[in-house]
């Protein structure tokens, strides 16, 4: 899955748009979600989905799967958002409309209607804000985001570390998958008692291999003339798109107008 997500960043319909343009667009929309009316947020999500699925040509199933995974966190947090506990004497005197109530002993567990509205609001905001992030993840390769930071004078040592982390996270994931396959081939993870033991072995092996990888990388960097700074040539395949800029401007203006009308 991680490889697929990364593939889309390199092969999508908006790949040629400068990362600065995409970042500016996503950040502006993200800021808008913080104060926008729920209906404006809904419209914004629909419009952003057109960008992701329509213009960037990301399969809608993939887009939905990623948003679904993010929504899972919201679902998991629902009990703490909705359910409240208070002494029954206090609950019976409240005028606030309740959706349900369960009393045990002198205590009541209940769901106030206002909390439902709030939870839905949080859910919608989460969905829209996540869509802004997903838009960037699907349309801009990570190294290009680092390029933007580099042009904004972020310290190079920090970018070097991020770059190497990006490179080795995939190697580490592949190594973990291979190790887990090898364990399964020899009966690992089959019994509950051995599950945790297999997992601990996997973690230990990953750690050992990471250290070996670190030493190997050091040698490789030195053999290729490392001078203390990680420098590579980056191709500039970008083309500023007036058509997308105009649509982003008009759409943004329209959303602001709708939001103003809705109050």
């Amino acid at each position: 899955m991680h490889h697929h997500l990364d593939s889309y960043a390199y092969r999508n319909g908006l790949r040629h748009i400068p990362p600065e343009q995409k970042l500016l667009f996503a950040i502006a929309l993200l800021l808008f979600t913080f104060f926008a009316h729920p209906l404006s947020q809904g419209l914004l999500w629909l419009w952003l989905s057109v960008w992701v699925v329509g213009y960037a040509r990301i399969p809608w199933r993939v887009y939905a799967a990623v948003l679904g995974a993010i929504a899972l966190f919201w679902v998991l947090s629902l009990p703490s958002l909705l359910v409240q506990v208070a002494p029954t004497s206090l609950v019976t005197t409240t005028t606030e409309p309740l959706l349900g109530r369960l009393s045990v002993g002198g205590w009541s567990v209940f769901i106030p209607q206002a909390q439902v509205t709030q939870a839905l609001g949080v859910g919608l905001r989460t969905l829209v804000a996540s869509s802004c992030l997903v838009f960037i993840l699907f349309t801009t390769p990570f190294p290009e985001l680092l390029g933007v930071l580099e042009r904004r004078s972020v310290p190079s040592f920090l970018l070097d570390i991020l770059m190497l982390m990006y490179r080795y996270i995939f190697i580490l994931l592949d190594t973990a998958v291979s190790l887990q396959l090898a364990q399964r081939a020899r009966g690992g993870y089959q019994r509950r008692s051995r599950w945790l033991y297999s997992l601990s072995l996997l973690a230990a092996q990953l750690f050992r291999q990471s250290l070996q990888r670190y030493q190997g990388t050091n040698l490789a960097l030195l053999s290729r003339g490392f001078t203390g700074q990680f420098r590579v040539w980056r191709s500039p395949p970008y083309a500023y798109s007036q058509r997308y800029a105009v649509e982003a401007g008009l759409g943004g203006g329209l959303l602001l107008l709708v939001n103003r009308i809705l109050g």
């Binding site: 190294p143 040698l219 003339g225 191709s235």
Partner: peptide, 27 residues
């Protein structure tokens, strides 16, 4: 010039062009 046994160990950048350019940039 040294080529390692495991190519994964030797590749340090994100894309093919970036990795090949790494040694050139160091010069």
């Amino acid at each position: 010039g040294l080529g390692f046994q495991d190519p994964e160990q030797q590749l340090v950048a994100a894309t093919v062009a970036e990795d090949i350019s790494y040694g050139l940039c160091n010069l």
